[in-house]
């Protein structure tokens, strides 16, 4: 280990909380909301990779790879949705899309 695992986990938790703050603060803007989710996923990946390095097993890296594949699928769908909704309503404000609930 180049640095103690604790420091890596601290970095990951700071990143996760920053992502959470981003989601909570910008909860009306879809683009910034998605960016916050990306930050949180990166924090999760950091934990996986740190664990993989700590125990010398490949599984953590594989899960990081899975997260990336999942993220690319999620982002492509979400952004296609954003483009579609912007085409409908000319805004990316979430509050305008309340009728999606029903």
């Amino acid at each position: 280990m180049i640095v103690p695992l604790t420091h890596l986990l601290l970095l990951a938790s700071i990143l996760f909380v920053l992502g959470l703050i981003c989601v909570l603060i910008w909860r009306t803007n879809v683009i910034m909301l998605l960016i916050g989710i990306e930050i949180m996923l990166n924090a999760a990946m950091l934990v996986f990779v740190a664990g993989s390095h700590r125990w010398g097993a490949a599984d953590g890296q594989i899960f990081a790879l899975m997260i990336m594949a999942m993220t690319s699928a999620e982002v492509s769908l979400a952004l296609a949705m954003v483009v579609y909704l912007h085409w409908r309503k000319k805004t990316v404000n979430i509050d305008e899309f309340r009728e999606l609930k029903d």
Binding site: L34, E38, L46, V49, A50, S52, L65, M68, V75, L79
Partner: peptide, 26 residues
């Protein structure tokens, strides 16, 4: 940081997929 943690593959995919594809898509 991933590269320092002996995960070069993940580091490269982070650059290619996150910095190079997801953020470009945004």
């Amino acid at each position: 940081i991933f590269y320092l943690l002996a995960a070069p593959l993940i580091a490269m995919f982070e650059v290619i997929i996150y910095a190079g594809a997801v953020m470009v898509l945004f």
